[in-house]
Design a protein around this nucleic acid. Structure first.
Lengths: 366, 366
DNA sequence: GGAGAATCTGACAACGTTGTCATTGAACCA
DNA sequence: TGGTTCAATGACAACGTTGTCAGATTCTCC
């Protein structure tokens, strides 16, 4: 395939040299198939009145060149946008995904951009290929990569190769020039662990998050740091694997609570798993926070809707997504980015699922 | 503003006559401001080197004509799409909004359309105006209207006026020609009420949903129908208002449980409110399902994550959204729609929050 | 065999912007 | 005073597709 060198003027500061792989147009297909562009158009749009043999030749050329019709040209000519609108009520209820969505939509609209969503079901064999396909097909100008997609190096490799700007929402340090938005996960995790210790707990269980999420790694690090600062021994049996979902939280809780010397508090790396802990405690007839304190992460709606409501850590997800999009649009326009991005501050949300060890327990045991 | 008559050939069946209000182009602005189109482009794109006086004239013309740059033309000429991509992990966890999103994204991608999201915070003074703005700006080819937006007549009036195809996801009967996707809310509500009665409950509380959601009306109707069929008297004091959110569920539960003769079962019009009921019962020290059975609606993640997990009614939201988009694309292509759309079937999900009145209670009181 | 219809194909003009380059004045400098 | 620079503006050619219409070929029917 041909290559084109293009010089991009970057707002006063740098001058970037971008090599863009020229994508095939209808003309390329037409000349390869030795027909007119109109005939290609007919085939692509499944119109009638094309000979089978001709159609075949065109389809082969389309496949060979990996031709994707240009939506803008189509829209301009055909007076259609090839886009549908989905209108919905923006409920007060939040949640990680919805917060990201809100922040991203608000900011991209303000900056004059539309926002196309693309979900990926993990694990996936074809992740990188699917990402490439998405970019090529939609021709988006930039990409916001949320966790844990931001943590897959083959995904970022594809984006780098396609020379498409992107921003990561993850604590992982990326290569210089690619901004990433993060909050002080480790610090917050350390703080919440210290809070639990301040309530008198010594044996504190910890349920890890999905090992492919960088944030999960950070949260565990914060927990370990707090133990270390308090000169408490890190006990591997008190740390169980988890995958950020309710079921794995339940399972980990069961294992922890069956220990000969079970923890008096459990910190889960997110609210869904913490809800699993609470569920399991109910099943076992353990009083929360009387006999067991529980802490979550993220402050999802679930955190405040279960009983007792969870002590948890809130991240300013909406604001983080907003900043991510803002950085992305700046990058696209070739503007200089602020060198260092401050991590966002997490916030400790105290609710009824944690209490001092002993005190409360005595009351309950009346 | 000029008007244009356009004849649309509708796939073999009907021929629709569509009057489209011609939108202003850069040329219109240029001639009104007595400048070249390039100057208009400069002003609109905030480029340098335009005299203040000229800029002012252009801006006035832009405002007067309500000019919105055509994204397709921009994209074609400027080699940009003015669209960003948001990639995210499609977690297994569902929820109303995410299910709608999944179904809609999957189907629109399959039909060759992009999907632009637009949240609305209700209540809103400017709802109809905002909808109009969205359509004019994005130039989407069609719209999927989810509840409760689908229940506002001023919104549908705007869409009708703009002659833009849309599909409603709501039980409300719309005017013929505008398809609406629905499920048998009333029937399901009746069935779940009958199930609760079959457990021996006679005094069954009901928490209504948001009065502006048509589905809320349907669910109440189903409850009343079940009572009637069982020849039980409808008792207004057992029916409390609610707004589909956790807090209103809690509040309604408090009122119901304070009655001199409180209900032995409560049916809430959605899971969030049912979670509020469960929360309140915990606070009051009432055993569920020993002393109170609770039923929700929707089978959100919350339903299975709280303790005890909720008996609830599951709607095939994903499939409904998928069908909605499918119908929408058929409408856009001017194809004949199936005359009658069957309501989707809801499914009763039995969990631990409901039990026979008496039996269980006796066990608990050992 | 010939007229007319049906099928297949291509030339060319939109579509509404932005990029490039030329032109016009005005301001500046030697 | 006569260049030189710079700001302000416009003319015009892309961009990649679809719609329109006309031409070429094949088929159908008398």
């Amino acid at each position: 395939m041909q290559r084109m060198e293009k010089t991009v003027k970057a707002g006063g500061f740098a001058t970037a040299r971008v090599a863009t792989a020229r994508v095939a147009t209808i003309k390329d297909v037409a000349s390869l198939a030795r027909v007119s562009i109109k005939t290609v158009s007919r085939v692509v749009n499944k119109e009638a009145n094309v000979q089978d043999q001709t159609r075949q030749r065109v389809l082969e050329a389309v496949a060979e060149l990996n031709y994707q019709p240009n939506t803008a040209a189509r829209g301009l000519s055909g007076k259609r946008s090839y886009c549908l609108g989905l209108l919905y009520e923006n409920a007060r209820e939040s949640g990680y995904f919805k917060d990201v969505l809100n922040g991203a939509l608000r900011t991209s609209a303000a900056e004059g951009y539309g926002l196309l969503l693309r979900p990926f079901t993990l694990p996936s064999e074809s992740l990188a290929a699917d990402v490439r396909q998405f970019v090529l097909q939609t021709r988006v100008d930039g990409i916001l990569l949320t966790a844990p997609l931001s943590d897959y190096t083959d995904v970022t490799a594809v984006l780098d190769e396609l020379h498409i700007p992107y921003v990561q929402m993850t604590p992982r340090n990326s290569r210089p020039g690619v901004p990433n938005i993060l909050c002080n996960d480790a610090e917050a995790s350390c703080a919440v662990t210290e809070y639990v210790m301040s309530l008198g707990h010594q044996r504190i269980g910890f349920i890890k998050g999905h090992p492919e999420h960088r944030a999960a790694v950070e949260r565990l690090a914060g927990y370990r740091l707090a133990l270390q600062k308090a000169q408490l021994k890190y006990e591997p049996s008190l740390v169980r694997p988890g995958y950020f979902d309710f079921e794995s939280g339940k399972k980990a809780a069961r294992a922890l609570l069956r220990l000969t010397s079970p923890p008096t508090a459990i910190i889960a790396s997110n609210d869904d798993m913490a809800a699993g802990v609470v569920y399991e405690a109910h099943e076992l007839g353990l009083a929360i926070p009387g006999q067991l304190s529980v802490v979550g992460f993220d402050d999802t709606p679930t955190a405040s809707h279960i009983w007792p409501p969870l002590t948890t850590v809130r991240q300013p997800i909406d604001a983080m997504a907003a900043q991510a999009i803002w950085l992305l649009t700046k990058t696209i326009r070739g503007q200089q980015l602020p060198e260092v991005t401050q991590p966002f501050e997490c916030q400790l949300v105290l609710r009824a699922s944690t209490a001092a060890r002993g005190t409360y327990q005595a009351v309950e045991e009346n």
